[in-house]
Amino acid sequence: MTHSSGVNGGHLDPPRLALAGLRGALAGPFDLTLARGECVAISGPSGAGKSLLLRMIADLDPNQGEVALDGRPRASFSAPDWRRHVLYCPAESGWWAQGVAAHVPPARRHAWAALAERLGLDPALLDGPVARLSTGERQRLALSRALLADPAVLLADEPTGPLDPENTARVEALLAERLAAGMALLLVTHDTAQATRLSARRLRLEAGRFVAP
Protein backbone atom coordinates (compact mmCIF):
# COMPACT_ATOMS: atom_id res chain seq x y z
CA MET A 1 0.00 0.00 0.00
CA THR A 2 1.79 3.12 -1.16
CA HIS A 3 -0.41 5.70 0.54
CA SER A 4 0.09 4.59 4.17
CA SER A 5 2.45 7.11 5.68
CA GLY A 6 0.72 7.15 9.06
CA VAL A 7 0.58 10.95 9.43
CA ASN A 8 -3.21 10.86 9.44
CA GLY A 9 -4.95 14.08 10.29
CA GLY A 10 -1.79 16.15 10.90
CA HIS A 11 -2.61 19.88 10.93
CA LEU A 12 0.08 20.74 8.42
CA ASP A 13 -0.85 18.12 5.86
CA PRO A 14 -2.83 19.44 2.93
CA PRO A 15 -6.12 17.58 2.49
CA ARG A 16 -6.00 14.47 0.34
CA LEU A 17 -8.65 15.94 -2.00
CA ALA A 18 -9.80 19.55 -2.07
CA LEU A 19 -12.51 21.06 -4.27
CA ALA A 20 -13.07 24.82 -4.42
CA GLY A 21 -15.82 26.27 -6.58
CA LEU A 22 -15.96 23.16 -8.77
CA ARG A 23 -18.79 23.59 -11.23
CA GLY A 24 -20.02 22.44 -14.60
CA ALA A 25 -22.89 23.35 -16.88
CA LEU A 26 -25.43 21.40 -14.81
CA ALA A 27 -24.06 21.16 -11.27
CA GLY A 28 -22.09 23.08 -8.67
CA PRO A 29 -20.38 25.06 -7.38
CA PHE A 30 -19.03 22.50 -4.95
CA ASP A 31 -16.58 23.04 -2.07
CA LEU A 32 -15.35 19.96 -0.27
CA THR A 33 -12.24 18.60 1.38
CA LEU A 34 -11.45 15.00 2.18
CA ALA A 35 -8.65 14.09 4.60
CA ARG A 36 -6.47 11.02 4.18
CA GLY A 37 -8.50 7.97 5.05
CA GLU A 38 -11.74 9.89 5.13
CA CYS A 39 -14.98 8.64 3.63
CA VAL A 40 -17.71 11.00 2.47
CA ALA A 41 -21.06 9.51 1.47
CA ILE A 42 -23.26 11.47 -0.91
CA SER A 43 -26.95 10.81 -1.26
CA GLY A 44 -29.71 12.58 -3.11
CA PRO A 45 -32.49 12.04 -5.61
CA SER A 46 -31.60 10.72 -9.04
CA GLY A 47 -30.72 13.52 -11.42
CA ALA A 48 -29.40 15.67 -8.55
CA GLY A 49 -25.91 15.64 -10.04
CA LYS A 50 -24.15 13.00 -7.91
CA SER A 51 -22.54 11.25 -10.87
CA LEU A 52 -21.84 14.61 -12.53
CA LEU A 53 -19.89 15.66 -9.44
CA LEU A 54 -17.75 12.52 -9.50
CA ARG A 55 -17.20 12.87 -13.25
CA MET A 56 -16.10 16.49 -12.86
CA ILE A 57 -13.64 15.57 -10.11
CA ALA A 58 -12.19 12.87 -12.39
CA ASP A 59 -12.07 15.50 -15.17
CA LEU A 60 -14.28 13.45 -17.48
CA ASP A 61 -16.69 16.33 -18.13
CA PRO A 62 -15.77 19.97 -18.80
CA ASN A 63 -15.66 21.90 -15.52
CA GLN A 64 -14.23 24.98 -13.82
CA GLY A 65 -12.86 25.51 -10.35
CA GLU A 66 -9.94 24.32 -8.27
CA VAL A 67 -9.22 20.68 -7.52
CA ALA A 68 -6.10 19.49 -5.73
CA LEU A 69 -4.66 16.18 -4.60
CA ASP A 70 -2.45 16.37 -1.49
CA GLY A 71 -2.13 20.11 -2.15
CA ARG A 72 -1.01 19.67 -5.75
CA PRO A 73 -3.35 21.33 -8.26
CA ARG A 74 -5.03 19.15 -10.83
CA ALA A 75 -3.78 21.27 -13.72
CA SER A 76 -0.22 20.18 -12.91
CA PHE A 77 -1.14 16.53 -13.59
CA SER A 78 -1.59 15.15 -17.09
CA ALA A 79 -5.20 14.06 -17.49
CA PRO A 80 -4.38 10.30 -17.51
CA ASP A 81 -2.16 10.68 -14.42
CA TRP A 82 -4.86 12.58 -12.58
CA ARG A 83 -7.48 9.93 -13.37
CA ARG A 84 -5.16 7.14 -12.23
CA HIS A 85 -4.74 8.83 -8.83
CA VAL A 86 -8.31 10.10 -8.48
CA LEU A 87 -10.12 7.12 -9.86
CA TYR A 88 -13.77 7.16 -10.85
CA CYS A 89 -15.60 3.85 -10.72
CA PRO A 90 -18.99 4.40 -12.41
CA ALA A 91 -22.23 2.67 -11.49
CA GLU A 92 -22.26 0.98 -14.87
CA SER A 93 -18.93 -0.68 -15.51
CA GLY A 94 -17.26 -0.44 -18.91
CA TRP A 95 -15.44 -3.27 -20.71
CA TRP A 96 -13.42 -2.84 -23.87
CA ALA A 97 -12.33 -6.38 -24.72
CA GLN A 98 -14.17 -9.67 -25.01
CA GLY A 99 -12.11 -11.60 -22.48
CA VAL A 100 -12.15 -10.54 -18.83
CA ALA A 101 -8.40 -11.07 -18.45
CA ALA A 102 -7.58 -8.51 -21.17
CA HIS A 103 -8.71 -5.70 -18.88
CA VAL A 104 -5.57 -5.64 -16.75
CA PRO A 105 -1.93 -5.98 -17.81
CA PRO A 106 -0.78 -9.64 -17.67
CA ALA A 107 1.65 -8.80 -14.87
CA ARG A 108 -1.22 -7.69 -12.59
CA ARG A 109 -3.34 -10.74 -13.30
CA HIS A 110 -2.56 -12.55 -10.03
CA ALA A 111 -3.09 -9.47 -7.92
CA TRP A 112 -6.44 -8.95 -9.62
CA ALA A 113 -7.51 -12.55 -9.02
CA ALA A 114 -6.60 -12.20 -5.34
CA LEU A 115 -8.65 -9.00 -4.96
CA ALA A 116 -11.57 -10.53 -6.84
CA GLU A 117 -11.48 -13.54 -4.55
CA ARG A 118 -11.73 -11.27 -1.52
CA LEU A 119 -14.93 -9.88 -3.04
CA GLY A 120 -16.40 -13.38 -3.23
CA LEU A 121 -15.66 -13.96 -6.92
CA ASP A 122 -14.36 -17.17 -8.45
CA PRO A 123 -10.90 -16.35 -9.92
CA ALA A 124 -11.83 -18.60 -12.87
CA LEU A 125 -14.15 -15.80 -14.03
CA LEU A 126 -11.03 -14.00 -15.21
CA ASP A 127 -10.51 -16.67 -17.85
CA GLY A 128 -13.99 -16.27 -19.35
CA PRO A 129 -15.69 -13.68 -21.54
CA VAL A 130 -17.20 -10.48 -20.16
CA ALA A 131 -20.54 -11.38 -21.74
CA ARG A 132 -20.97 -14.26 -19.30
CA LEU A 133 -20.63 -12.11 -16.16
CA SER A 134 -23.67 -11.16 -14.11
CA THR A 135 -24.28 -7.50 -13.22
CA GLY A 136 -23.02 -8.06 -9.68
CA GLU A 137 -19.90 -9.85 -10.92
CA ARG A 138 -19.14 -7.01 -13.33
CA GLN A 139 -19.58 -4.48 -10.57
CA ARG A 140 -17.18 -6.25 -8.21
CA LEU A 141 -14.64 -6.96 -10.96
CA ALA A 142 -14.74 -3.29 -11.98
CA LEU A 143 -14.21 -2.22 -8.38
CA SER A 144 -11.32 -4.61 -7.88
CA ARG A 145 -9.82 -3.47 -11.22
CA ALA A 146 -10.01 0.11 -9.92
CA LEU A 147 -8.46 -0.75 -6.54
CA LEU A 148 -5.69 -2.62 -8.33
CA ALA A 149 -4.48 0.77 -9.57
CA ASP A 150 -4.05 1.77 -5.90
CA PRO A 151 -5.70 5.20 -6.23
CA ALA A 152 -5.19 8.00 -3.69
CA VAL A 153 -8.87 8.89 -4.00
CA LEU A 154 -11.64 6.53 -5.10
CA LEU A 155 -14.82 8.05 -6.52
CA ALA A 156 -17.24 5.16 -6.23
CA ASP A 157 -20.72 5.48 -7.76
CA GLU A 158 -23.05 3.04 -5.98
CA PRO A 159 -20.39 0.32 -5.69
CA THR A 160 -22.75 -2.09 -3.94
CA GLY A 161 -25.91 -1.22 -5.87
CA PRO A 162 -26.67 -4.64 -7.37
CA LEU A 163 -25.12 -6.71 -4.53
CA ASP A 164 -26.64 -8.92 -1.83
CA PRO A 165 -25.83 -8.18 1.86
CA GLU A 166 -23.07 -10.77 2.05
CA ASN A 167 -21.16 -9.37 -0.94
CA THR A 168 -21.88 -5.81 0.18
CA ALA A 169 -20.11 -6.66 3.44
CA ARG A 170 -17.12 -8.00 1.51
CA VAL A 171 -16.88 -4.80 -0.56
CA GLU A 172 -17.17 -2.64 2.55
CA ALA A 173 -14.44 -4.61 4.31
CA LEU A 174 -12.05 -4.06 1.40
CA LEU A 175 -12.92 -0.35 1.20
CA ALA A 176 -12.42 0.03 4.98
CA GLU A 177 -9.00 -1.54 4.66
CA ARG A 178 -8.01 0.93 1.93
CA LEU A 179 -9.37 3.82 4.00
CA ALA A 180 -7.22 2.71 6.91
CA ALA A 181 -4.25 2.80 4.55
CA GLY A 182 -4.91 6.45 3.66
CA MET A 183 -7.11 6.29 0.57
CA ALA A 184 -9.91 8.86 0.57
CA LEU A 185 -13.31 7.63 -0.57
CA LEU A 186 -16.10 9.69 -2.08
CA LEU A 187 -19.07 7.38 -2.21
CA VAL A 188 -22.45 7.80 -3.84
CA THR A 189 -24.89 5.59 -1.97
CA HIS A 190 -28.58 5.46 -1.12
CA ASP A 191 -27.86 3.21 1.86
CA THR A 192 -27.55 5.26 5.07
CA ALA A 193 -26.54 2.13 6.97
CA GLN A 194 -23.61 1.73 4.59
CA ALA A 195 -22.48 5.28 5.32
CA THR A 196 -22.60 4.48 9.03
CA ARG A 197 -20.69 1.22 8.62
CA LEU A 198 -17.91 3.06 6.75
CA SER A 199 -18.00 5.89 9.36
CA ALA A 200 -18.66 8.29 6.54
CA ARG A 201 -19.36 11.99 6.75
CA ARG A 202 -22.73 12.34 5.05
CA LEU A 203 -23.64 14.96 2.46
CA ARG A 204 -26.84 15.43 0.57
CA LEU A 205 -27.03 16.68 -2.99
CA GLU A 206 -30.15 18.24 -4.47
CA ALA A 207 -30.53 20.07 -7.79
CA GLY A 208 -26.80 20.32 -8.31
CA ARG A 209 -25.89 21.72 -4.84
CA PHE A 210 -24.99 20.35 -1.41
CA VAL A 211 -27.79 20.84 1.09
CA ALA A 212 -27.96 20.16 4.85
CA PRO A 213 -28.42 16.40 5.34
Binding site: A58, L60, A79, P80, D81, R83, R84, L87, Y88, C89, P90, E92, S93, G94, W95, W96, A142, R145, A146, A149
Partner: peptide, 13 residues
Amino acid sequence: GRAAIEAQLCLGA
Protein backbone atom coordinates in the same frame (compact mmCIF):
# COMPACT_ATOMS: atom_id res chain seq x y z
CA GLY B 1 -18.58 2.57 -26.97
CA ARG B 2 -18.80 5.38 -24.45
CA ALA B 3 -18.74 3.16 -21.35
CA ALA B 4 -15.80 1.15 -22.68
CA ILE B 5 -13.81 4.24 -23.71
CA GLU B 6 -14.42 6.07 -20.45
CA ALA B 7 -13.60 2.95 -18.41
CA GLN B 8 -10.14 3.05 -19.95
CA LEU B 9 -9.78 6.80 -19.44
CA CYS B 10 -10.73 6.35 -15.77
CA LEU B 11 -7.97 3.80 -15.29
CA GLY B 12 -5.40 6.24 -16.70
CA ALA B 13 -5.32 5.35 -20.38
